Structures are given as C-alpha cells and as structure tokens.
Amino acid sequence: MHIIEGAGAWTAPREGANDWVEQLRVPNMSVGTYCIPAGGLDNQSPHTEDEIYVVTAGRARIVTPDSTAEVSPGSVIFVPAGEEHRFDDVTEDLTLLVVFSPAYGSRTGRSADPG
C-alpha cells in the first residue's frame, strides 16, 4: 500500500504556465496532479497512454475533435491514448487528478511534463 500525499491538490503554477506533478509511478500506471490557473491555456498534445482525469477543483470545458463538455468538481473524464484533447475556458483555477495507464511516457520513453 502507498498513500499518495498531495494528489489532486491545487499548486499555484509559475506565472504564464500550468503545473504538472507526478506523485506515483509504477510500470502499469502513473498518478499526478495537473493545475491550470483561471484564464490559463492548456497546450497539451495527445498522449500515447490512456488517461483518466478527476476534477478536484475549478471549472472549465474539455474539448476533443468529437465533443465538448463542461467539467467541475467530481467530473471524471476518460481520454483514450492518441485522442486530441485540451481544457478550454478555464473560469476557476482547475485542479485535476490524472491517472495514466500504462505509466506516462512508457510507450515513448518520455517521463517529463505531459502538458
């Protein structure tokens, strides 16, 4: 067992940036927190891993090529590997608990910022 301290908690990003912190990494999954300040831009690229977002704070819209949805605390979003997606119209500081499976970057050799 491992308690993941700080997962899903807001961390103020440096000015003009978003913040990604990986808090757990094992071969078959990784867990981290992604924070986007109100009015911020999400410029992430599609990932090679499946991904689940759990909104722990804030409000925004998630946009994919096929749909758009409003998200708020308690929203759970599944994004399959390779699907383009971004958070748009961030009206309140957005905090996302993120689970990648397998671990982020394990299919490409990357392990840095997924944003």
Rank of each mutant, 00 (worst) to 15 (best):
Met1Trp: 06
Met1Val: 11
Ile3Phe: 12
Ala7Met: 09
Ala9Asp: 05
Trp10Ala: 11
Ala12Trp: 02
Pro13Gly: 04
Arg14Ala: 14
Gly16Ser: 04
Asp19Tyr: 07
Trp20Arg: 02
Gln23Lys: 13
Pro27Leu: 10
Met29Glu: 09
Ser30His: 07
Ser30Asp: 07
Val31Glu: 03
Pro37Ala: 10
Ala38Gly: 09
Leu41Ser: 13
Asp42Tyr: 10
His47Ala: 07
Glu49Asn: 13
Asp50Val: 11
Ile52Val: 15
Ile52Lys: 06
Ile52Met: 13
Tyr53Lys: 03
Val54Ile: 02
Val55Trp: 00
Thr56Phe: 05
Ala57Leu: 01
Gly58Lys: 09
Arg59Thr: 08
Ala60His: 02
Val63Gln: 03
Thr64Asn: 06
Thr68His: 00
Ala69Val: 01
Ala69Pro: 01
Glu70Ile: 09
Val71Ala: 08
Ser72Cys: 11
Ser72Phe: 13
Ser72Leu: 13
Gly74Met: 07
Ser75Glu: 01
Ile77Gly: 01
Val79His: 05
Ala81Thr: 11
Gly82Tyr: 11
Gly82Asn: 11
Glu83Thr: 14
His85Gly: 08
His85Ser: 10
Arg86Ser: 09
Phe87Ile: 01
Asp89Phe: 00
Val90Pro: 06
Thr91Ile: 09
Glu92Val: 10
Glu92Met: 05
Leu94Lys: 04
Thr95Cys: 14
Leu96Gln: 07
Val98Glu: 05
Val99Gly: 00
Val99Glu: 02
Val99Asp: 00
Phe100Gly: 03
Ser101His: 10
Pro102Glu: 05
Tyr104Gly: 08
Tyr104Cys: 06
Gly105Phe: 04
Arg110Glu: 14
Asp113Thr: 09
Asp113Trp: 09
Gly115Ala: 09
